[in-house]
Structure formats: structure tokens, C-alpha cells
């Protein structure tokens, strides 16, 4: 086996499920919002759509074991939820309608905040604790 980095089994499969759920709901919600009431809160709704796209890409990346892509998605998500979460508290006027990431995902039980953290934990664990296969070109073995 040249590459045994199965990130889509075990806890990874749970992540695929939860990410899939969020991909579905965030995208569906954003589609409805953009189609019916775009002018109400364009920024919030565009951010909802963006988060939906990221969840879709993350789901695919986790399901197909695209480690780099999954890593990028989880990182963008974590930054997104932190930045948007903070911005929605500091500039509430800019967010008249909630996005998935408003107030760190409070409308979704803070799952949007927890999910990328779990994703990153899983990606780092599944990379290092598995039997060491040649991870040429991974460039992220230990050092910051």
C-alpha cells in the first residue's frame, strides 16, 4: 500500500456524516435566503453561501481522503467561525440576519466552532499515530 492515510474511516466517517449534514443544511438555507430575500442582508447571506460551499468541499475531501484539502477546509472554517463570530458580536449591525457562523455558531449549538477543531485534531492524529508510511511531500511532520 503506497499511501495508507485513511482519514475517511473510524472517527473520520463520523466527521463525514456531520460535515455532510452541515453541507446540506447550510447550502439549502443559503440558497433559500439568496433566492428569496437577498436584499435583506447580502453580506450575511453571501457568508452563509460561502460556508455552505466550504462544508461541501470539506465533506468531499474527508470522504475521499484528500488530506491537504480537508486540512485547508478545516483551517478556513475555524478562521471563518472565529472571525465572523467575533465580527457579529462587535458589529451586529452588519449582520441583521444570522449566518451559520454568527456568534460562533450559537444557532447550531456551537457545532460550527467545534467541528473544525475536531476535524483538525483527527487529521493530525490520523497522520501521526498510524504506522509511519512514507509521507513524502507532506511537509508537516512535527515542526511548526
Amino acid at each position: 500500500m503506497p499511501e495508507r492515510t485513511a482519514i475517511n474511516t473510524g472517527p473520520g466517517r463520523v466527521l463525514v456524516g456531520v460535515y455532510g449534514l452541515f453541507a446540506l443544511s447550510a447550502t439549502a438555507r443559503a440558497t433559500v435566503q439568496l433566492a428569496t430575500q437577498f436584499s435583506h442582508a447580502p453580506l450575511a447571506y453571501l457568508l452563509s453561501a460561502l460556508s455552505g460551499v466550504i462544508y461541501i468541499v470539506a465533506t468531499v475531501a474527508l470522504a475521499r481522503s484528500y488530506r491537504r484539502l480537508a486540512l485547508a477546509c478545516c483551517t478556513v472554517e475555524l478562521i471563518g467561525v472565529l472571525v465572523i463570530g467575533t465580527a457579529s458580536l462587535v458589529y451586529p449591525a452588519a449582520f441583521p440576519k444570522a449566518t451559520v457562523w454568527s456568534v460562533y455558531g450559537i444557532g447550531y449549538g456551537f457545532v460550527p466552532l467545534i467541528l473544525p477543531v475536531l476535524g483538525l485534531l483527527w487529521l493530525s492524529r490520523s497522520g501521526t499515530s498510524r504506522s509511519g508510511t512514507s509521507r513524502s511531500g507532506r511537509g508537516r511532520t512535527g515542526q511548526a
Binding site: T9, G10, P11, R13, V14, G17
Partner: peptide, 10 residues
Amino acid sequence: LEPTRWGAVI
């Protein structure tokens, strides 16, 4: 697809 504890988590 996941006949482990993680299937039960799902």
C-alpha cells in the same frame, strides 16, 4: 460502512 464504535457514534 463503519462496523466499529464509530458506527455507533454515527
